[in-house]
Amino acid sequence: MQELFSRIYDLLVDGGILVAVLVVCLVLWLSDLISTKVTKGRLHPSAIAIFFGLILAYIGGAVTGGSKGLSDISLFGGLGVMGGALLRDFTIIASAYGADLNEIKKSGMLGFASLFVGVFSSYLMGAIAAVAFGYTDAVSVTTIASGAVTFLVGPVTGAALGADSTVIALSITAGLIKTIFIMIFTPLIAKKIGLTTPKMAMVYGGLVGSTSGISAGLAATDPKLVPYGTMVATFYSGFGCLLCPSVLYFLTKWVCTLL
């Protein structure tokens, strides 16, 4: 009997991605139910599903002590493949089908300008937080501030400047907090901040940044807006990688000598 169970377990681990599909399906079904029955449709099911996903990731991390959420449990390892960069980017490109080229032309310059303002403002907030918590060396302040831009820009910048690994971990955490807040809050505040048109979605992607946060947040708001916001947000990360270890680092270094 025990052998049968262990055989079945091996089978499920081998077909990990299919187990992941079943788990996600279950989460989406539950979210759909909660959305219609509890929130009377006010909260989009995908927002609830993403929140559940994060809770599952927390449980996974608490059980295994690993860094990949629920996918660290070998039975649910397929979640890492299903939610990995390859399928995420592939489906994002698919979501661009049906997007209108004229809408992009309309907000081209505004979207581009929002990239600069977005990267700079997030960096500034992160730098202020770092200094407020007693960091005064330029490398640490720059790394933490870059983390506030996105969780990718933080470690890229930290590695380039030779920052301490705890500081790099802090920068990843700062970016992760940002991403998770974007996922949860975007659908809740979308109407209040005027996030209803492709143009505003592009500006939003540029000002707020973080590809995964924007794509998930917009998906829960209005799936039609996903390609517009995500397109600008991917350039946001690129811009951050470009500006943080160079221009913004030199600026920070100069400010730190004044402190």
């Binding site: 995908s46 990731a57 959420g69 996918s71 299903m82 939610g83 995420r88 995964s212």
Partner: peptide, 9 residues
């Protein structure tokens, strides 16, 4: 995206 959220740290 749900799978991605479930595999974050």
């Amino acid at each position: 995206v749900v799978a991605m959220a479930a595999s974050q740290n």
